[in-house]
């Protein structure tokens, strides 16, 4: 999974052709605590980079998940809302949406694993 990229807002993304697969990071998962609810967007929805497209809730907090790239949501992980433990930094089970990118170059600006680890260490 070393080719995952990471945002300041704690999403991971993995580029597959013109599609970005998006999820939330292990760091985010820990920060949120016990997750009780995930609200998924509709397939076909257009999202702009930086726009929130899903909400993940713990008992005391609701956190928006932001689109790291502009494009159209082509798939959502239907399995997640009923299996919230799978919501993690895992390409197979933990992805939330797939976004077909309008402008694939947007994906190039994010951190790699090492940079993200340095970044989160600074947040402690």
């Amino acid at each position: 999974m070393s080719d995952m990229q990471y945002t300041n807002e704690h999403e991971w993304l993995k580029i597959d052709g013109d599609t970005a697969v998006v999820g939330i990071t292990t760091y985010a998962r820990h920060a949120l605590g016990d997750i009780v609810f995930l609200e998924l967007p509709d397939v076909g929805r257009k999202v702009a980079k930086g726009e929130d497209f899903a909400v993940v809730e713990s008992v005391k907090a609701a956190s928006e998940i932001y689109a790291p790239v502009t494009g159209e949501i082509t798939a959502i992980n239907d399995n997640l809302p009923d299996n919230l433990d799978d919501l993690k930094e895992d390409l197979d089970k933990g992805w939330i949406v797939k976004i077909k990118m309008d402008n694939p170059s947007e994906a190039s600006e994010y951190m790699d694993k090492t940079a993200y680890e340095t970044y989160t260490a600074g947040l402690e």
């Binding site: 016990d34 009780v36 008992v59």
Partner: peptide, 10 residues
């Protein structure tokens, strides 16, 4: 005692 709020919400 302390109540399980996670279960209540899940």
């Amino acid at each position: 005692r302390r109540l399980d709020e996670v279960q209540a919400a899940k």
